[in-house]
Amino acid sequence: MSHHDVLHPETLPAEPEKATLEGRNKYLGFWFFLGGETVLFASLFGTYISLRNSTADGPSAHDMFGLDLVFIMTILLLTSSLTSVYAMYHMKNNAFKKMMLWLGITGLLGLGFLSLEIYEFTHYITEYGFTFRSSAFGSAFYTLVGFHGGHVTFGILWLASLMIRNAKRGLNLYNAPKFNTFSLYWHFIDVVWVFVFTVVYLMGKVG
């Protein structure tokens, strides 16, 4: 396939993200990366679970966590997962502008999530004096939730650079795999969050 066919395809195939060998490689490679990330987060979850009660007489999960904020955060992130599905739907229909619109919404929802998380952390620090250094529980909490937050931040920056770079050139076989890879990453962030709200917040509330 010549460069021209990749960058300016006459028709976009049904699955543009997997039309080239590079695209298929990227798709598979990124899935494997997510497999590795699964173990990465499992290590963090395991650490958190073993240290969740090590509060060193500081505030505990039950004292601090409120469900309202976490619920809103959850809905924001879940919805952003759906909006990225919409974006990929429009990609497959070769509707570039609609894809960009839904990707934009996805990014904004992600930003909303991130703002609430920053607010939450500030709240714990100012209200309870609960920091990264106050106890083993504190270290484990901020590391686990912060690693997830870091992934969200990186995702938003990645999305922004993808959208800006491709704003004026439409879909082709070179950037379709990139958008698709981002969407996989974003779903994975949501997967991790499902376990974060379950293990950290809900179980923390239950006791």
Binding site: L28, W31, F32, L34, G35, G36, T38, V39, F41, A42, S43, F45, G46, T47, I49, S50
Partner: peptide
């Protein structure tokens, strides 16, 4: 193949969490 490897990852992850927990 992707699914198979992801199950592998989930298995390794489950062992990790169980071990540490």
């Amino acid at each position: 193949m992707t699914a198979l490897l992801i199950y592998g990852g989930i298995w390794a992850a489950a062992l990790t969490v169980t071990g540490l927990g």
